[in-house]
Design a protein around this nucleic acid. Structure first.
Lengths: 261, 261
DNA sequence: AAGAAAACGCTCAAAGTCGATCAGAACAGA
DNA sequence: TCTGTTCTGATCGACTTTGAGCGTTTTCTT
């Protein structure tokens, strides 16, 4: 097999995983013509991103696709450790009685799980799954508003309906998960419609918090949501590439780092 | 059978358990190509986790009954036979390429399950659960629009956002589940906000179909949605109280009866 | 009730797996 | 071309998993 870029390897690993439900370090090493050490490093990266679960000897799919029941609450707790840490840090910015907007994304999903106990919250989101987290928590003092729209594959409601809904609303603070961030291109996402919806989120909020794990740095998605300086606060992990913090702090007032896991 | 990771074995064991209600150490050992000792260790691990109960010779299902979460798909199949029959009859009114509105309710939920194969459908609903039915069917030719709003306990999105969304849309046909219907009070529901949303549904549709099983006749909810004659078609069961059909036909052009189960 | 057969789990040695570390290779930017 | 960064592979000690032996316990048979 020809030389492969790390990204290609990652995709190959995930493909194998989807096909067989499991991957084995020794098999991948042989199959891809790379050392076991490198396979382990790939597996670690993918596990940190939450794409798979490492086990002795290889890795298996996350709990989501198993034939036996995983259950919602459980899945929530099994999010990647870094995401949970970011979510916890971000949740600290929320106070009782606030109105909060959450866009769609795995990080904001983790954040939602940490917010169900905060009293008198008004939550606005365009993700049915995030709304479901609050519904099933059944906290009577909370109000959850779901924007309408058409759902994208990543579970975001977008389009004219979503934009119209967000235009009518104003929140204290808006939390945004993004797909990538760089100094030149700012915050980006691979989906144009989601970018549009995310801009509407920002327009409706007094304060803008971006939540992004360290792997997002250096990635540019198809479509820009906003430049870096549009964020008031960035919550990210201290595993961030060296030097990135300085660059980010030039544009963003507050950069919060969670300790490495 | 290829080499299996421990986690895979655990899942396999649980699958077997779910299928047959019991597993035997010797059988698993032979089946998975591993020693009996390892099978015992797996069983011990699963027993400690509470996923099964060890017995001499193997293991049986624990009291927790892992099969608790077939959840959605199952609930759909387990809907009352009458509702399934109504849903099937109502689905017959839908043609490929139509735009269809479904309000929130168990009957319309059953209807949704019968519509996922119809090509080129545009579906508008205020029920996240109904939207989920279409999402997971993953029919690329269908478009699903979820109105925004606040969710009621019965899983309907209501309020200004829902009304604004529906005001912007126009559909060919609207299917409505209701809570009660009588000659004097027409179609009713116990929730004022839902009534309001349902009126918006009707206002946005060229044709109005009410779907209600026979038990709804004679019930008056808190709030009227519309008088009987607002419906163009009523789909109901032939188990309806004697004489009711005549009364209904005075107000409604088409009354479709499904045969009793 | 006694003996045979099966199942159990403890222990240990062998095999397999893991991650820390370091040195070399590949690569991009100056 | 040079330099610094990133990615990669080899080594090695620590750890985990596995299967076989073997004495004990449970179940079945007579």
């Amino acid at each position: 097999m020809a030389e492969m870029l790390p990204q290609q390897r990652h995709r190959h690993i995930l493909d194998e995983l989807n096909k067989y439900g499991q991957v084995r370090v020794t098999a991948l090493s042989h199959e891809l013509g790379i050392s076991e050490m490198t396979v382990r490093r790939d597996l670690n990266a993918l596990a940190t991103a939450g794409d798979l679960v490492k086990v002795h000897g290889g890795a298996t799919r996350g709990p989501s696709a198993t034939s036996s029941e995983p259950g919602f609450a459980r899945k929530l707790g099994l999010a990647a450790p870094e995401k949970e840490a970011l979510a916890h840090r971000a949740a600290g910015l929320i106070e009782a009685g606030m109105s909060v907007a959450l866009n769609s994304g795995t990080t904001t999903y983790a954040l939602a799980g940490q917010c169900t106990d905060i009293p008198d919250l008004t939550v606005i989101t365009n993700s049915p799954r995030i709304a479901e987290v609050f519904y099933s928590a059944d906290n009577a003092s909370q109000t959850v508003i779901l924007t309408g729209g058409i759902r994208t594959p990543s579970d975001a409601l977008v389009g004219p309906l979503a934009l119209a809904a967000l235009a009518q609303l104003h929140v204290d603070i808006c939390f945004m998960g993004v797909h990538g961030m760089t100094a030149e291109d700012g915050f980006t996402t691979p989906n144009m419609l989601e970018a549009q919806a995310n801009r509407a989120f920002m327009a409706s909020a007094a304060q803008h918090v971006v939540v992004a794990d360290h792997s997002k740095w250096g990635i540019t998605g198809l479509c820009q949501i906003a430049p870096l300086d549009a964020a008031d606060v960035l919550v990210t992990g201290s595993a961030l590439a060296p030097g990135a913090v300085e660059i980010l702090e030039q544009s963003i007032d507050t950069v919060l780092l969670t300790p490495a896991p």
